[in-house]
Amino acid sequence: MKTIEQYIAEHPFFKGIDPSYLKTIMGCSNEVRFDIGQFILREGEEANNFYVIHFGKVALEIFTPIRGPITIQTIGDGDVLGWSWLVPPFHWHYDARVLEPTCAIAMDGRCLRTKCEQNHDLGYELLKRFTHIITQRLEATRLQLLDVYGVHCESNDDKRL
């Protein structure tokens, strides 16, 4: 069995991070497991954690009164779940529902926030890594908005004949 430390060190999110930071981060983490259907976080609740996913699958959902839950994105092996713990007012914007049994390392956001305030080098390092993830998600959302597989000029071909 691997230790939490090994999991964290091998996870793509922490790849190449300074071992001294790893130690600090370790101090704020514990291993968690979720079953299918379980909600890891819910919209509006205080965001005090983030999750480094080892394996599993989680759906980020928005619930609408008429359409019901709509999946915005699914998150899985090697991903990171949640960045609202970094940004005031520290509330979740989505629900996260487990689709497949999920094993993750939960990071205590409050604890990390304090440590980042004390050590800006650590704060900057973490912020860089989260910015990368936020950028990736933003790009993906933009691509999603473009609806690239849709037919945008239907029957234009016919009009030409």
């Binding site: 839950p69 999946t71 994105q73 699914t74 092996d77 090697g78 790009e139 993906a140 999603q144």
Partner: peptide, 25 residues
């Protein structure tokens, strides 16, 4: 496999195809 959008009964991935790339490692 992933889809850009899905209704509630889809248990697979949701998200554009590029989101699968970093996960493939």
């Amino acid at each position: 496999v992933t889809v850009d959008s899905a209704k509630g009964n889809w248990r697979g991935n949701v998200g554009v195809v590029t989101t699968l790339i970093p996960r493939a490692q």
